[in-house]
Computed example of a mutant assay.
Amino acid sequence: MTAAAGTTFWRELIRKPFFWGIVAIIALLALNVIKDPTYLALSINPNNGHLVGNLIDILRQAAPVMMIAIGMSLVIATGGIDLSVGSLMAVAGAVSMEFLSAAGDSFGAALAAVGLALVITGILGAVNGILVAYVGLQPFIATLVLMLAGRGIAKVITGGQNTTASNDSFRWIANGFVIGIPVVFILAVLIVIAVGWVVRRSALGLMIEAIGINPRASRMAGIKPKGLLLTTYILSGILAGIAGVMSVGSVMTVDISRTGYQLELDAILAVVIGGASLAGGKFSLSGAFVGALLIATLDKTVLYLGISSSATPAFKALVIVALCLLQSQRVRSWFRTRRKARPVEPTVVKEEVAA
């Protein structure tokens, strides 16, 4: 690679929003290493032979956020938004725990619990899609309704109580390891790759973006936006259900008031960090993936540094604002303009006069 080609490569890379997300992850990890040089160390648990360490915790914590961020990316690309994903996580957790508490400890019961949870959240996602695509409600209002109603549905399912169950196969989804890597993270990566392959190797991704750019023009071009909108909201609901299964599987308990609480905001942040436009018409699944990792790293850093819970939102906001400024083309152009407009050094002026 020539010097000119290398310079062009780095310039193109810097323009990609997810690049700054990776930089932010490295910076946060470096901050933790400064406090504790052993922060990145990995060790093997002598009891089960699994890898343990802060990096493993980050990967496990990022998996549910990745799931809802991927679904949110597709919904936002259509010009909509899904505020109900956190509540759907609670519904999925309530359904699976209630089912397992009665079904017992077997592999078949675990599969049935997961399947039932995804069917229910897929149906609720379809409700969002119908309200948006066919009834004509604004996505914000339609999903806000289910955001409020979802936890009520979860309370009805559990009778208003935190439900606990026992099933080793179900627990393995969230707590198991394969080659030292958490199963939950591997599952999340495989789902991201599968969704990315479908939307980018087919016309589906282009049609979703077309709807977000101009719904009327896309309809005149032969795209049926109603069916696509319904599909994206169903997919968002199913991915939220997977995230809910991942969340409750780690402790085998669903807390109706805490499971998925405010994770819809983390999903939106992950999508924005990844470079998607909230106005629709543009999405990046790889960017959302990096954004979810950043959110998990940031949450872990807040706990590790011992930042007060009252100051936690301000710290997270500071990091996110700084990152968004780094991503902004306008801000970077302003810095370039300021650098070019710097006055000429006096010594250089004297040399020019003498010449």
Rank of each mutant, 00 (worst) to 15 (best):
R200A: 10
G159V: 09
P46W: 02
K316D: 13
N47M: 11
V192I: 10
V272M: 13
I26L: 15
A102Y: 02
E264V: 10
V248N: 03
T347V: 14
M72Q: 09
T259L: 12
A112Q: 06
I70G: 05
G71T: 05
F315I: 05
S166I: 09
I58C: 09
F335Q: 14
L74T: 00
Q61Y: 14
V145H: 11
V189G: 00
M67Q: 00
P182G: 07
S169E: 10
V132R: 04
P346E: 10
G159Y: 07
L118N: 00
V119Y: 06
D82I: 02
I120E: 01
S310F: 14
V33Q: 13
A314T: 13
G306A: 01
I120F: 02
V290T: 08
L116K: 01
L263V: 09
E12M: 10
S257I: 00
V302R: 03
A217C: 09
V178D: 05
I191W: 04
A69K: 03
V199N: 02
A194M: 10
L74G: 06
I181E: 10
A110I: 00
R338H: 14
F283S: 01
I211V: 12
G21R: 00
R11D: 15
L293E: 04
W20A: 07
R338T: 08
L51M: 15
F335S: 08
V198G: 01
V183Q: 07
G6P: 03
I141Q: 07
D36C: 04
F185C: 02
R201C: 11
K35G: 12
P346L: 11
G237D: 01
F107M: 12
I76W: 01
A188G: 12
S87V: 04
G260T: 09
G86V: 06
I307E: 13
T7P: 02
R200F: 08
I307Q: 13
F140L: 13
T312L: 04
T297I: 00
G196C: 13
Q329N: 15
